[in-house]
Simulated assay, not measured.
Amino acid sequence: MTNQSFAHDVVAWAKQRLDEIDAMIAQAEKSADELKESARTEADQALSRLRVSRAKLEGQLEDLRTQAEAAKSSASQAQQALEDEWVEAESAFQAFLTSTGEQTEIARNAIAARAEAQRKSWESALNDLHAQVTTAVEKAGEEFDAAIGRLSTEAEKAKAKIGQASSAGDETWQAIKTGLSEAKAVHEKTIKKIAEALSKAF
């Protein structure tokens, strides 16, 4: 996985967490008035912590975006330097061809050697790309099918547990929360595997 795709994945993960926190804050604010006085104080403290955590997460996300932009800019500058140097190399090669004057055999051999090197390079690149794509697509397909199967299973379990939540006692509620946490962990792991498999394919 490239640094750029890794940064993209982390940004996507952080945006998902921000969406979750926003939903939690909105629901907590909506429910706060219904709490008894003693519970209200604790809930307000927890809500305050949640808001602080959200602000920090958003700040860290902005830092990551800035770093990703800087890395992209640095890569663009390096690419520009390579392209500039290639212009110089091309100019030097043309000057060499010009210097051969009437000795056309020398120029012809130089051009033929260059064309052969380009052909080999392109052929090698195409063969490598074909092998990578074939392997990656096969593996991505297998991982995707397996991941979707696991995700569907966990989604059904989570749906069933959420349905039980309204009538649950304390002990059952704790078990449901644990189950939902486990389902969320499996979901995140599965989504990550799918993203990795697809990034390898492309």
Rank of each mutant, 00 (worst) to 15 (best):
A14E: 03
K192I: 03
E88D: 10
A39W: 08
S199K: 11
A75E: 03
E116P: 04
I21T: 05
K120L: 12
E90Q: 08
S167Y: 06
W13G: 12
S121V: 05
E34D: 11
A12I: 01
K189M: 08
A195V: 14
I191P: 01
R54P: 03
T100R: 04
I21P: 01
A68F: 00
K161M: 15
Q67H: 11
K189Y: 06
A195Y: 05
A81N: 03
E154V: 09
R51E: 12
L35A: 12
R17L: 10
E34C: 02
A81S: 03
K120F: 06
A117C: 00
Q174N: 12
S38W: 06
V137P: 00
F6R: 14
E37D: 15
T104E: 12
R108V: 06
R49E: 14
E142D: 13
A23D: 06
A136D: 04
Q67D: 09
S53C: 09
A147N: 02
S199W: 08
G179Q: 09
K192D: 12
L61A: 09
A46M: 10
L126V: 10
Q77H: 05
A125N: 00
A201Y: 00
E105N: 06
E20N: 10
T135S: 15
D22C: 04
V133L: 01
A89I: 05
Q77L: 05
A117I: 02
G149E: 05
A175S: 14
E182H: 14
D145K: 13
S74M: 03
A26Y: 03
K193L: 07
A136Y: 03
W173D: 10
R54I: 03
M24I: 14
F144R: 13
V186W: 01
E196M: 12
G179Y: 02
L47I: 15
A160D: 09
A14V: 07
A55V: 07
E105M: 07
E88C: 01
T135E: 14
L129T: 14
K192P: 04
S53V: 14
E69H: 11
K189A: 15
A78V: 03
F144S: 12
I162S: 05
G149Y: 00
T41E: 13
A160C: 04
A158R: 07
V52Y: 08
A12N: 01
E143I: 12
K72T: 15
V87P: 02
L126E: 12
N109H: 02
S31W: 08
E58P: 07
Q164I: 05
N3V: 02
E138N: 15
S74A: 13
S166T: 14
G141M: 05
K139E: 15
K161E: 13
D63L: 11
G163W: 08
A81R: 04
D170K: 10
K120R: 11
L35C: 03
E196L: 13
Q27H: 09
S99R: 00
A39Y: 06
T134L: 10
